[in-house]
Computed example of a mutant assay.
Amino acid sequence: MSDNRIIRVGISVGDLNGVGIELILKTFEDKRVYDLCTPVVYASDKVMSFYKKQLKFNYPINFIADAQGIEEGRLNVIKVWDEVVELQPGIPTQVSGQKAFESLAAATEAINKEEIDVLLTAPISKDNIQSEEFSFPGHTEYLESKIDGESLMILMSKDIKVGLVTGHIPVSQVSEALNKELICKKIDIMYQSLMQDFGVSKPRIAVLGLNPHCGDHGVIGKEDDELIRPILEEYQEKGQLVYGPYAADGFFGNQSYQKFDGVISMYHDQGLVGFKAISFGEGVNFTAGLAKVRVSPDHGTAFDVAGKGMANTSSFQEALYKGISIIKKRKEYEKLTANSLKTKK
């Protein structure tokens, strides 16, 4: 990221028949946003013009061939494909999924080349995006394969940050997927991210147990006592504020999450049911642990309202602002740690 330019936020459009482009057009209609960032969308002039006309937006768009043409103060669209694409708002198609992948691939390449500083991904359909080029459960796994680092999916809002040890896998496979190496890796990523991406000097992390009531001393499962608890004791012996395991229902129900900077959940719905009950519509999906900053809204393609001008921009806009905040925090952290005093011999 160059210190001489406004932060560039690269945006993949998601499924062409979902709400992604509508969210983009609505968000960047507000000219005040351009004081914070320069948006760069990866799509085509024809697709953007279709939605611009259908949704009755009349502000100008800067259609360009590559990053050389990016202008501050404008919505920039880099043309990833030239062909005419049949659009059917609200209906997922093979073509809308393929173009979602092409947009994502172009934006990912751009952030690796440092043409953009933050990657903001609009929602994809995990079904129709599948191909020989994209055989992943979701954005997170694809980006981990393309960007340096090891990922942790964090869903966050102003009230809570929840990271997942296991992500998009069937519940039947969760227990056998858990091991000490994986749990420690995810805790370590959360710990580091809280410091470098959010400015928390001494993170407090809560870890949820796997079984109901954390196993009730082995009556409902042994993983909590035999696997998770000893790991947390090791962290505490090192002076790190990592506590648990906590039974998820009571933890969310009595608002214990308010005492911690981050929460580690053993599996997807264990953490995200609680999170979305607290923050639905305002949450942000952040991929921690990677060398580049990626954020996304916490909702899906919303095919039921696509093309109708009804899409709620709250989560998309919050993702935009969080991405800008995180890249700034990360640069501050890099400067502070780069100048650490060395111990004299």
Rank of each mutant, 00 (worst) to 15 (best):
G271K: 10
I231P: 12
Y267K: 04
A291Y: 06
F251T: 04
A247D: 15
Y267H: 07
E237V: 13
F260R: 12
V284W: 14
F251R: 05
G283P: 02
F252C: 05
Y267V: 00
F275T: 02
K238A: 08
F275Q: 06
A247Q: 13
D261G: 07
I228Q: 12
V293I: 15
A291R: 13
V242P: 04
Y257H: 13
A288Q: 02
Q236R: 15
E237P: 00
P230D: 11
E234Q: 14
G274K: 04
A288G: 10
E234K: 13
Q255L: 11
L272W: 06
G262M: 05
Y235P: 11
G274D: 01
E282C: 08
S256Q: 15
T287M: 03
V273H: 01
V273E: 08
P230T: 08
I278C: 05
Q236C: 03
A248W: 00
F251L: 07
V284N: 12
A247I: 02
D261F: 00
Y267I: 00
E234V: 15
K238V: 00
Y235D: 07
G253C: 08
E233M: 11
G239S: 06
V242C: 11
Y235N: 14
V273L: 14
S256D: 08
G253Q: 11
L232C: 08
S265T: 14
Q258E: 15
Q255T: 00
